[in-house]
Simulated assay, not measured.
Amino acid sequence: MEYVDSVDQIDLVIQNAVKVMEDSKMQVFEICEAARRELESLERELERVLAETGTTIETVDRLERDYRLARIRLTEVSRDFLRYSEKDIKSAYETATNLQLDLMVYREKESYLKKRRGELQVRVRNVERSIERAEAIGSQMNVVLDYLSGDLSQVTRILESSKNRQLIGLKIILAQEEERKRIAREIHDGPAQSLANLVLRTEIAERMLGTQELEVVRGELIELKKQIRNDLGEIRKIIFNLRPMALDDLGLVPTLRKFVQDFEERTSIRTKFDVVGKEKRMSSALEAAMFRLVQEAFGNAYKHAEASLVTLEIVFLEEIIRLTIRDNGVGFHVDVTEARARSHSKFGLIGMKERVELLQGKITFASGVGQGTTVIIEVPNQAELRKELGYNGE
Rank of each mutant, 00 (worst) to 15 (best):
E388L: 01
K90N: 14
M26R: 13
L309G: 07
K109P: 13
I14W: 06
V127C: 06
E178H: 12
V217A: 00
I204C: 03
V294M: 01
G361H: 00
V13H: 14
S6E: 14
G210Y: 07
I320T: 08
I14A: 04
V199N: 09
F291A: 00
I363F: 00
R83H: 07
Q15A: 02
L224P: 14
R236G: 09
V276D: 08
V13L: 10
F273W: 01
A34H: 12
R201D: 12
R133L: 12
E22S: 12
I239Y: 03
N16E: 10
A184F: 00
R125N: 14
A383C: 03
M208F: 03
S343L: 07
R73S: 04
E43L: 02
D11C: 02
N164E: 06
E94G: 09
F332K: 08
T324N: 06
I173S: 05
F365S: 08
E47F: 00
L214C: 07
F332Y: 06
Y3K: 11
I72T: 15
L170W: 00
Y112F: 11
R257D: 07
N300P: 10
A34G: 13
V77F: 03
V276G: 05
G372W: 04
M208N: 12
S284E: 02
R107C: 08
V155S: 12
G138L: 07
L42D: 11
V356K: 00
R201E: 13
R386K: 01
E110Q: 11
R229A: 05
I238S: 11
I376Y: 02
G390P: 02
E177N: 13
A341C: 08
L359S: 00
E296D: 09
Q15N: 08
H344M: 08
L221R: 08
D102F: 05
I235R: 10
F240G: 10
V143L: 06
G372T: 03
K258A: 11
V105S: 15
L293Y: 02
E160I: 12
R201T: 15
D80M: 03
M245H: 15
V315C: 10
Q9D: 14
L247E: 04
V105R: 15
E76C: 02
E86L: 10
T53G: 13
G118V: 15
R68N: 11
P244W: 03
R125H: 13
P254V: 11
G348F: 01
L232V: 15
V127A: 05
S111H: 15
Q261D: 11
E178S: 13
E2V: 07
S194Q: 09
L221F: 03
G390Q: 01
R180V: 15
M1H: 14
E86G: 13
L195A: 08
K346V: 07
G329F: 00
V124A: 10
R207L: 02
R133S: 12
V356A: 00
G233Q: 09
E234A: 01
A383N: 02
G118Q: 12
D274Y: 06
K303H: 10
R65S: 09
F263N: 05
